[in-house]
Amino acid sequence: MPGGGPEMDDYMETLKDEEDALWENVECNRHMLSRYINPAKLTPYLRQCKVIDEQDEDEVLNAPMLPSKINRAGRLLDILHTKGQRGYVVFLESLEFYYPELYKLVTGKEPTRRFSTIVVEEGHEGLTHFLMNEVIKLQQQMKAKDLQRCELLARLRQLEDEKKQMTLTRVELLTFQERYYKMKEERDSYNDELVKVKDDNYNLAMRYAQLSEEKNMAVMRSRDLQLEIDQLKHRLNKMEEECKLERNQSLKLKNDIENRPKKEQVLELERENEMLKTKNQELQSIIQAGKRSLPDSDKAILDILEHDRKEALEDRQELVNRIYNLQEEARQAEELRDKYLEEKEDLELKCSTLGKDCEMYKHRMNTVMLQLEEVERERDQAFHSRDEAQTQYSQCLIEKDKYRKQIRELEEKNDEMRIEMVRREACIVNLESKLRRLSKDSNNLDQSLPRNLPVTIISQDFGDASPRTNGQEADDSSTSEESPEDSKYFLPYHPPQRRMNLKGIQLQRAKS
């Protein structure tokens, strides 16, 4: 015994090295194993092979420090690593049964499904019991997946119906949107047309105001020219009257000059006056001389005659003075006559000038009245044309509004008919989907599995289990394997941990 101590140590070291070499393959693929292994699927088989106990299973599945599946799978690998070579062998058998691809990844061999460990530990009855539990578990999982698949199909059909409904609603909204954009385009076109009409109206108003201003300026210029013409006519008439007055005065002077006595007659009258003065002096001298030589009687007679002569001279002087006064009065009367005649001529000139001015103003008033009548006639014609244009424009607008209203009513009726057609199509689609759903539900009910399987069917299934373990590994792997896509769409199922009653199965096998 003492001599065998070193050999035992060498043997233990060799086993430990082999164990480390075995687990080295697992550690190399630890990331892939932790990512894809579900500990809840492996722990029943590991407990059946007595590699882990209930406490280890509870620690792996329910520990609060292991929230994710990767953490739980890593903890399970750590626990199996502590179990040595047996933990490695049982772990590979569980991978061979549940995850053939991972088994091939770790060992590089094809899975054979021999279950040597569980046969050694529990015997064939334990293997049968384990396989029966796994089959029931798989059936329950398949039923749950079928239910989930039916629910998802129903949800899918519902979503398809909602999608069709949303599509129809979208078509309806597109119809309304198209109608909205069309009405918006019509409104924009009408606004552009309105702005264009306003611009045209403004341009016409500006043109009309400009023409009116030009016409008023032309009328004012015409009036100024007419006033200048009238003033020139007035000056012409005044000059004609002055010329006529000057002509009359010149004719009067000419007549006075023609009626003036001649120079010879004046000289002859002056000679006669001198001769008479000479004779008068001679007679006076004779009379003076006679007075001195005459007697007293003759002197008395001469005195009487002288007195008579003096009286006659006085009378004559009075007559001469009277004649002079009369001549002066006649001259003054002639001057007054000439003055009055001049005033008369001036008044006649003024009267004729005023008459011509009156005629001029009368003509001017007639011209202004004619212009006013023409302006009123043009204004009435413009008003009439404007009223006709406004009436025609309003009539066109009324007809346009009428046609637009008819078009809008027809478009609304068309839209309502399209919407009604879309709604009826939606109703038809809904009815078809309901009919299809009812038909599929009836087919699913016919094809669904019963909840409680008979014992004979279970025994028959387990009677055929042994050949399947040898020759149909691919079928078992397809039913027991969970793909990543299934984990996305289906909830994980945790079967209840219970042991099955095998009395009925044993009785059935005894009868057979």
Rank of each mutant, 00 (worst) to 15 (best):
G4Y: 10
P6W: 13
E7S: 12
L15T: 13
L15D: 12
K16C: 07
K16N: 06
K16L: 13
K16G: 10
K16F: 07
E18N: 14
E18H: 07
E18K: 13
E19C: 08
D20Q: 11
D20I: 09
A21L: 05
L22C: 06
W23A: 00
E24V: 10
E24S: 01
E24W: 03
E27T: 02
R30A: 07
R30V: 00
H31C: 14
L33M: 06
S34A: 13
S34T: 12
R35N: 04
R35Q: 04
R35L: 04
I37V: 08
I37M: 03
N38S: 06
N38I: 01
P39Y: 08
P39M: 01
L42V: 12
T43L: 09
P44R: 02
Y45C: 06
Y45H: 10
L46K: 09
R47H: 07
R47N: 09
Q48G: 10
Q48K: 08
C49N: 15
D53Q: 09
D53E: 08
Q55W: 11
Q55S: 10
Q55T: 13
D56N: 11
D56M: 05
E57W: 02
D58F: 00
E59N: 07
L61R: 02
N62E: 12
P64N: 06
M65T: 09
M65H: 09
L66E: 03
L66D: 00
P67K: 08
S68D: 03
I70K: 03
N71H: 08
N71L: 08
A73F: 01
G74D: 06
R75W: 05
L76K: 01
L76R: 02
L77D: 01
D78I: 03
D78R: 02
I79A: 02
I79G: 03
I79H: 01
I79D: 04
L80W: 04
H81V: 07
K83T: 10
Q85T: 00
R86L: 05
R86S: 13
G87E: 08
Y88F: 06
Y88L: 05
F91N: 03
F91G: 02
E93A: 08
Y98P: 00
Y98F: 10
E101G: 00
L102Q: 13
K104V: 00
L105E: 09
G108S: 00
K109W: 00
E110N: 13
F115S: 13
V119R: 14
V119A: 14
V119F: 15
E121W: 12
E121I: 07
E121A: 07
E122S: 10
E122R: 05
G123R: 15
G123Y: 15
H124N: 15
H124G: 15
G126P: 13
L127Y: 13
T128D: 15
H129M: 07
M132A: 05
M132N: 01
M132Q: 01
N133P: 04
N133T: 12
V135K: 13
K137G: 09
Q139F: 04
Q140G: 10
K143C: 06
A144G: 12
K145S: 09
